[in-house]
Each structure stands twice: as C-alpha cells, then as structure tokens.
Design a protein around this nucleic acid. Structure first.
Lengths: 371, 371
DNA sequence: ACCGGGCCCTAATTCACATTAACTAACGGC
DNA sequence: GCCGTTAGTTAATGTGAATTAGGGCCCGGT
C-alpha cells in the first residue's frame, strides 16, 4: 500500500526547479503561457509528463467558482421505464450537448420519489451544479419560485410560464410548423380547412392555433372554422372514446356539408383524439385522405408499438404530421443554459423547429369540392 | 448585473452569530451535529435556508469530504444510440440504486475517449464524485492504473482483471447459471452433452466452462467433450460465417455418431455463433430440439429487432438460455461501491445470479439415444 | 553610470470547506 | 477552592490551483 499522492503543481514545480505559479501558467495554457520562456515551458511540461500529472478540477473549480457540472432535474423519474421512449431523446440531447461543451451531467435522483420537490430538506441540492436543465410536466411552482428567488440558473425543456416571473426555456416551434402545414394543404388546392383543438389554455395549444391563423392569412384565405373539443389536454383515457365520439361525428357531418376538405388536429398532450377520429371517420364513411385530408399537429405516442388495453385507442395510421425535435430541444436547453451562465442576463427563450413527417393522410382535395 | 456571490458558510456563520466551523458541523450532518446545541443548530439551518445556501462541492471534495455524488463513467458514450438496448438496463440499475441510497449520479461525459491527453481535464475529473462505477468494454488500462494509484474508489460492471492489481467489480454468475442448465438437461434424461466455446481466455469463458464441468460432475456423468471454436470472442462479423460453417458441420456429424443429445453454447461476446449453428444444423438435417437440444449460455443480441445487413446472421429462435441481470448488476455495483467508500478496504468482487429463460430449444432426448 | 522598460518569474493571497486542537464555561466531586 | 469533566464553540490549518502584485535581470538609450 503505497499511499502515493497524486502529483500536484508543487511537485512539478520542484522537479522543474520553478515555482508553482509558473507551472500553473504553463498548464493552464493560452493566456499565461505566452509569458513563459520556451525552455521553462518545455521543462515544466516535461516534468508534468514524467510525474503523470493531471489537473485537479476540484481545486480549479474552487478558485474559478465553476464546477463544470450541469444538472438535469426531472419532476418525474429520470429513467422512467414506461415513458422511456418519450424522454430518451431529451436525455440524449442534453447529455451529448453537455459533453460537447466539456461539462459533466449530474442527474438528480437523490430527491425523494413521489411528487418531486427540489427544496425538500431546506437545502438545495441543485446548486452543486453550475446550472440546471429541468424536465417534466408536473412542475412544482413553489420550487420554481424559490429557484428564481435564489437566482439559480436553470432552463426548462418545454414552454413554462409562471405568473409574475420570466422563466428561461426552450420549446418546439409549434406555430411555424403548423403554419407550414397549412401552406402545404393550401398549396395542394385545399380552400376550406377546419381546425380541431382541445379545450385548454396551454401555451402549445395557443401557439398552434396562432400558427393556423397565420397560415390561413398567408394563403389569402378568409378565416377558417376552429372547433374546440370538450376535453382538456389530458382527460382520463377510458373516457375519451365516450366523450368524443358524438361531437366528432357531428363535426364530420358539418364539415362535409360545408365543403371542408382538410382538417388540422391539435392532439394536445393526449393522442387519443386522433384515434377516436379515425374510428369515427370509418363509421361515418369518410375516407382519409380521399374525402378529407388530415394532418396531425404533433406526434402520436407511444410511437411504434401499442400494447395492452390501450391498443384499441392507438392509431396505426401514418399521419402526415410533424415531430418534436426532442434531441434538439435537449441540446438547445444546454446551450441556452450556458449562455445564461456566461451572461448572467435576464431569462430568455428559444424555439426549435419541428420536423415535418410525410405521412399518407394528405392528398389534393376531391375534384369539384371546395370551389 | 449584481455578481451576487453564492452564500458560503461564512455568510451563514455571520448571520447566525456563530463561527464557520460550527456551520460546517451542522451542515455536514450526523457526526458533528450531535455536539452542537439544538438552538444553535436550528439557528444555523435557519440562516442557511434564508440565504439559499448550498455546499460548494469543489471545496468539499478538495478537502476530501463526501459529496454524496456517485460517478458513472463509460468507456463509450453514456447514451449510446446503437447499443441503447444493451446499456440501458445498466444505467437504470445504477441510477435507481443511487437514488435509493440518497446519492446523485454524475455522468462523466466531458472526459474525451480516445488517446488521453494529460493536460485536458483528464480522468481525475472523476474525483468530484465520491466514487465511480465504470462501464464499457474498451477499457483504457493506463487510466485504470492511474485510478488505482490514486486510491480512487471505483467498481467495474463486468469482470475486469489487470495484472498485478486487484480490481473491484460485479459480474454475472455465469458458472452457476451454466451448472443449472446442465442439471436441467440431465434432469430431462440427457446423458451425453457437448460444450462449445470460443477460442479465448477471458474470464467469462472460463467461468462458464467451469460451471459446465461442475454440473456434469454433480450429475454423476463422466467428463463430457468440450470443443473450442477457432474464433476469439469478437471476430470480424463478416468472416464468422466462413470461419465457422465447416467446423460446425463436422462437429454436428461427430456428435450425432457419438450419441450427443444436448449442446451448450458459449456465445462469447459475439452472438453470431449461434446464428451460424442454426443455419448449419438446418443444412445438415439436424432438428433442434428434436434431434439435439441446445442451450445458449447468454443472450442473443441485439435482442428484439434485427436490422440491415446483419439480418441474415441474427438468430430468430427462442433459445433456452439465461439472461444477464443487467439492472441487477448496475444496482449491485452501486452497493459495492458504497461498501468500498465506508470500509476503505481492499478491492472486492461480487457476483449476481443470471435468470434462466425457458425457450423452445430443449426437450427430452430422442428415445433410444444416449443409452 | 543611470534610468526606463520589457521580459520571466516568484511570493503571497484567495477560494469554500473540513478537521482538529484548544479553549471557555458550567458543574461537581472531593 | 482545586482539579477534572463535559459540552459547546472557536482559531488555526490544510487542500490544489489561479491570480496578482511585484521583483530581479538584462539591455538599450542617454
């Protein structure tokens, strides 16, 4: 057991016959090393190599105030088994971007499970990181307010708003993506569109609707009908079918008589709507896309495989839609966080484009329709 | 902008009217805080909460204290996309166990793989964690040696050996799992077994063979033939078929004439062997399991879906086998690491049982055979 | 010679915390 | 009243690296 201490700058200094400060200048590179004579420089580097030196980042951070650690805190479990496919790309993006900028990623798991609280024992674990990316739906508002009060740098993935405070976040650009889909439809000749959205007042819902109206305006069409479904963004799964079947059937009839040839559906946080629509359309004899082009403003989830009891309410069609740039959001969050760390400015927001997916639920309008 | 410093223990001390040392005693918890009067204690905690204090991990680890952070270092990318399904359970296990013991998990992504440069923030970034779980195949021996030299506590997932040093690791109990499969076969009536292993000298390979011999002995059978294939554990994928077809065909003939009714296959790190065996058996008219029961001493990978060019060399059969307890290994690694932290003893090793999987490649021996 | 500058380098300080020896006050046993 | 004991607290020290304020030293100009 030789408790051989690891080499420090002092050791190198002794070996090279210089002072620790000089070693620091050489090792730290760029700024200081230009002021060091070449032969001293090589002598130091030589000794360093010989002694197997490497920087003690703890000491470096102590002086510099940075830990070079970014935190990732999720309000649900960090590696959720059941939502694995949903969260994984976020994690991937965050991890990769973190690595690229030379930081390490600290997963906050020690915080008790259940409703996750940041400030459980009064002392804030998050601060061991230089800044933090926050993920998850069920946000504890009190915690966030506390973080803001503490001036702790953090960035949300997904748009988050809190009355009275400015939060930093990265969010998908639902508006532009929706607008682009509208233009795609009008480009195909559709002149009468309908828009379907859940009954909530969340930002993503508003963004998409705004994008819809913008697209309609850009295409030079008059205002198009917007229909609000009597469900919030996350209704109980087992009631969705009952809740939506009748209203959707009615709407389909209305649209047909009104000459609507294309429909845009905001799935909310709940992708069952589109599945119900599919069922209802079949029953009503409306063919998609021959009679009615349909685009989905988001992604059906779970993406690939449906299992168990839900199977009947999972759509198998390849909807024309757009996907959340989930890895991109993770990456963007990291970069935004770094900006925050450097500038120490006010909260800021960033949007990331959504990628269109060419499905098979869109085609030109039926001849003679929508004149 | 106010460059508001983060609150330090000195700030708290001033606010609470005590010394910094007292604050440290209170904050660090258990050991010292019993020697602090209750009212002092609460005053300190109060001030800490009020000032939004949190410990500076850099300072703490500089001095050698505990951070309640465990590190996870992988010699490949932490969230590898292509090996995602393989590594995920390990991560899950590590993360969950870490959370359960009240630690946070630090993913070391900043450390660049490849040729290690001394003056980049090298391996000793690990030190910001109290200890570290190491994962991955392509281990850099120099790094490990360095860690050992530093007396840094770490645990490998998977058996790792380095000449001259004792490493701590958790490993699947291949031996017992193999023995159990042998007993399973003899229990069905098989009396003449054959064993197939790759041509390497790795520990897992040895373990499995030892388990085989133990099982054979336990069953009261004489020594059974062991055949070594002329490939190491990771031959080039595109050559496996060529390399193995002929020898396997020969072996099949030999076994048939020798009355062998069951075969145990050590897949090595390369699951193609079993795929080749399957092809060859079909071509030789040997039915599995009617003519020959086959068990796989490990898992075929990639588990569920085969894609691309490899598809022809991926077996689709549901082999009777055992699976690596991957989440369990992750968990065990964390617990072993904690033991190491507490005891500071010598390196230690731990094995975790493998779970048997009932496939459809085993049945009783053909009547009249193996008498 | 003397002064003024660069140029290289060093001594000293700082960072936030943990640890430890030492100190104080209060209390009792004798 | 002296010493010992114990609980509670403090002053001092160590940790590795970065930074800053200089201090020699050499050299050219005057």
């Amino acid at each position: 057991m030789s408790p051989r201490r690891r080499a420090t700058q002092v050791d190198i200094a002794r070996a090279a016959g210089v002072s620790q400060a000089t070693v620091s200048l050489v090792i730290s590179g760029g700024h200081g090393s230009e002021q060091v004579a070449e032969h001293t420089r090589t002598a130091v580097l030589d000794a360093a190599t010989r002694l197997g030196y490497s920087v003690n980042t703890a000491a470096r951070s102590l002086k510099g105030g940075r830990n070079h650690i970014l935190g990732l805190y999720t309000f649900e479990s960090v590696f959720p088994t059941d939502q694995r496919d949903f969260y994984y790309p976020f994690l991937l993006g965050v991890e990769r971007a973190t690595a690229e900028v030379g930081y390490d990623l600290l997963l906050f798991s020690s915080v008790t499970p259940g409703p996750r609280r940041i400030y459980s024992d009064g002392i804030n674990r998050l601060k061991v990181a230089d800044g933090c990316v926050l993920l998850g739906r069920q946000v504890d508002h009190a915690d966030i307010a506390e973080l803001v009060r503490d001036d702790f740098p953090f960035v949300f993935v997904g748009r988050r708003e809190l009355p009275g405070v400015e939060l930093s976040y990265v969010a998908p650009d639902y508006g532009t993506a929706t607008r682009d889909l509208v233009l795609r439809l009008t480009g195909l000749g559709h002149r009468r569109l309908a828009y379907l959205r859940p009954d909530d007042d969340q930002e993503p819902t508003r963004d998409r609707e705004a994008g819809f109206r913008a697209g309609v305006a850009d295409a030079g069409l008059p205002d198009q009908p917007v229909h609000v479904l009597p469900v919030g963004s996350s209704p109980p799964v087992d009631q969705v079918l009952d809740l939506l079947s009748e209203p959707l059937t009615t709407l389909l009839t209305t649209w047909r008589s009104d000459g609507v040839t294309a429909l845009l559906v905001d799935p909310g946080e709940n992708d069952r709507t589109i599945a119900v629509l599919e069922q209802v359309a079949v029953r009503a004899g409306v063919r998609i896309p021959e009679d009615l082009s349909v685009v989905l403003l988001g992604e059906p989830s779970p993406p690939p495989s449906a299992r168990g009891a839900d199977a009947e309410l999972v759509s198998t069609r390849d909807w024309t839609r757009f996907t959340l740039p989930r890895e991109g959001l993770g990456r963007a969050a990291v970069h935004l966080l770094l900006d925050l760390l450097d500038d120490d400015g006010p909260a800021r927001q960033l949007t990331v484009p959504c990628l269109p997916v060419e499905g098979d639920t869109v085609c030109p309008p039926p001849v003679g329709a929508g004149a």
